[in-house]
Design a protein around this nucleic acid. Structure first.
Lengths: 152, 152
DNA sequence: GCCCGGTCGTTGCGAACGCAACTCATCCGT
DNA sequence: ACGGATGAGTTGCGTTCGCAACGACCGGGC
């Protein structure tokens, strides 16, 4: 069998799981409570803001926010109904659709961003020294690279 | 406002999120594919195996597998229907219910465990040196401790 | 002994998601 | 230029989950 994992490694794995659950739960709850903005919505708004022309193709956005195609379709439906984003046909490729950041979406993100940043700081980054942050980043990036896209 | 977060810290946070998503998705998919066992079910079986008398109160189990009370009720319903666990009334406190590991559950876990361990190793721990694992563990535990139970 | 606040587990309800099937558009080989 | 293969996005359906309300039960104060 030999599928043994050293206690140190197993401990790292378990704390990784618990830390993620605790921190993301806290962040999602705070964001929802103080800005009525679900974390998923926030993610979408961030991705759009960082995107060229403040817009993204559905598929690219889906990958960015770690959602399935259908999941994103519904999410965009809801956000459009709330006026935070817009759909715009893609002229180059008429199969495609752009999701565009609406003014209301930009405003909403501007209001929510400080709150979420404070949360990330309080619950996560403030517990890391600058040096530890660099180490953690390098280490996790290595893991990310080793787990490249299994398709979706 | 000063809600700034250094690039190194922000990078650590982002890779933390992506790494978690990638690894857990891969693990859940492999486990499901090779043993027809959802990750949640596996978690429950592990907790019961490690518990005294191979049984746990609903609430304790819910906390252990990071699920809400109602979520666990339904999950135990399904697992009981599949014969992996049993419900047993708690005599000391007649409000309570024990979830007990059934023989079929133990067998099922025995079969799935090597597969999951191999997955954890392949996708996560194998990318860490023994020393890095210790550092990561310590670091994440610090974060866990700082984010103690906001109640559920 | 009898309440009354708190706890344990379940249930009704709704929200969010993934998979698979479908539509329509694009691309490529011939 | 045309037909089949591939890709983008949406929709139907089933699954899983959390919240809130509920009923049963415990325990302390009187």
């Amino acid at each position: 069998m030999a599928t043994d994992i050293s206690p140190a490694r197993m401990g790292a794995w378990r704390s990784f799981l618990v830390a993620h659950a605790r921190v993301t739960d806290a962040l999602a709850a705070e964001l929802e409570a103080e800005t009525s903005l679900p974390l998923t919505w926030y993610d979408v708004l961030v991705q759009l803001t960082e995107a060229e022309d403040k817009r993204l193709r559905m598929q690219d956005l889906a990958r960015a926010v770690l959602l399935s195609k259908s999941g994103l379709t519904r999410l965009v439906d809801r956000m459009m109904a709330s006026g935070l984003v817009t759909r715009e046909p893609c002229l180059d490729d008429r199969r495609g659709t752009f999701v565009c950041l609406a003014d209301a979406g930009r405003d909403r993100l501007d209001g929510a961003s400080p709150i979420h940043m404070r949360g990330i700081s309080q619950h996560f980054t403030s517990h890391l020294s600058e040096d530890e942050a660099r180490q953690l980043h390098a280490l996790l990036d290595r893991i990310v690279q080793a787990n490249l896209i299994p398709a979706r």
